[in-house]
Design a binder for these strands. Structure first.
Lengths: 148, 148
DNA sequence: TGAAAACCAAACGTCAACGTAAGGGTTTGT
DNA sequence: ACAAACCCTTACGTTGACGTTTGGTTTTCA
C-alpha cells in the first residue's frame, strides 16, 4: 500500500492550499477522502494523481472547474469501463466499451487540437509583425554599411 | 475618415455587451472614447481593432484583463516607436527602437510558444491512452475474426 | 416634432474560486 | 502526558469581470 498523505503534505507537494483541497472535495471534483478515526483526511496516490490531472486542466488548459468536472466525468466513465473489462464481459459489450472510450478520449484531444490551432494562428500574426520589423532593421543596417 | 460606430453597433459586431465596452474603457484597456456633443460614445476603427485584439487575448489565450493590459502596454510602446520612426530620428536611435520592438514582440511569441508546448504535452498524454485502447480494440477484432 | 429607441452615469448584484477567521478537536514528539 | 503543531467544520469575506437596475438625457425617424 502507498504512503498516506496529510492535507498539508499534499498541498505542499502540489503547490496549492489546503483550502483548495477541501474545496475540490466539497464540490465533488474528487471523491470523499479517507479519514483517520479522528476525522483527519488521508490522501492516497490515486487521489493525488487525480488532483494532478485536475490542476493540469486548470493551469494548462485554463479550464473552469465546471469544464474540469466534465472531463473528470469522462475519466470516471472510462474507469468504470476498465473495471467492467477486467471483470470480463461478452465480446460485443467489450467492443462497445472500447469504442466508446475511444470516442470520449478523441473528444478531449479534439478540444486540445482546437486550442492549439487558435494559438498558432495568433502566433503567426505576431511572427508576421516580427518579420516586418526585422526586415526593416536589416535594410537599415545595409544603408548604414553603404554609408561608410 | 472611417465610419462612426455606436456602442450597441460595436457590441453587436464584436459579440459582446455594451457593459463590457464601458467596463474596458473604465479600467483603461482602451483609451477614453470620442463623444458626441450630447455625450454618446463614438467608436472608430482603430479602437475597434484594439478591442478585437483584446478579445482575442481574452478568448484565445485566456488571459486575465491584467495580463491583457500588459500586452496592450507593449502595443502602446510599439505604437509610440512607430510615431517616433515616422517623425524621423537619428539612425542609432532608429536601430535601438527597432531592436527593442523586436524584443518585445519576441516575448509575446515566446509566451504563446510556451502555452502551445504545454498543450502539446497534454495532447500527447491523451494520444498515448488512445493508442493503447485502439490497440486493444484491434487485438480484440482479430480474436473475433479468428474465432469465426 | 414627438415618441420610440438608444444612450448615459452611478451603484448595487452576481458568480466562480477560493481566502480568512473562529472555536474547538486530534496527532505527534518529547 | 502534555504542549505544539496540525486538522476539523462553519461561515463570512474577497476579487475579477462583468450583469442589472434606475432615473434621467440624447438621437433618430416617421
Amino acid at each position: 500500500m502507498g504512503k498516506a498523505w496529510s492535507v498539508e503534505a499534499v498541498a505542499g507537494r502540489l503547490g496549492i492550499t489546503t483550502r483548495t483541497l477541501h474545496y475540490y472535495e466539497e464540490v465533488g471534483l474528487i471523491p470523499p477522502v479517507q479519514r483517520t478515526p479522528g476525522g483527519h483526511r488521508v490522501y492516497d496516490e490515486a487521489t493525488i494523481a487525480r488532483l494532478e490531472q485536475i490542476l493540469r486542466l486548470r493551469d494548462v488548459l485554463g479550464y473552469t472547474l465546471q469544464e474540469i468536472r466534465e472531463v473528470m466525468d469522462v475519466e470516471d466513465v472510462l474507469q468504470g469501463y476498465r473495471v467492467q473489462l477486467e471483470a470480463g464481459v461478452k465480446p460485443e459489450v467489450r467492443m462497445d466499451i472500447l469504442e466508446h472510450s475511444i470516442q470520449l478520449l478523441e473528444t478531449v484531444v479534439a478540444h486540445i487540437d482546437e486550442k492549439v490551432e487558435r494559438l498558432e494562428t495568433m502566433r503567426q500574426r505576431y511572427r508576421e509583425r516580427l518579420a516586418r520589423i526585422e526586415q526593416k532593421l536589416a535594410k537599415h543596417r545595409n544603408e548604414v554599411d553603404e554609408g561608410e
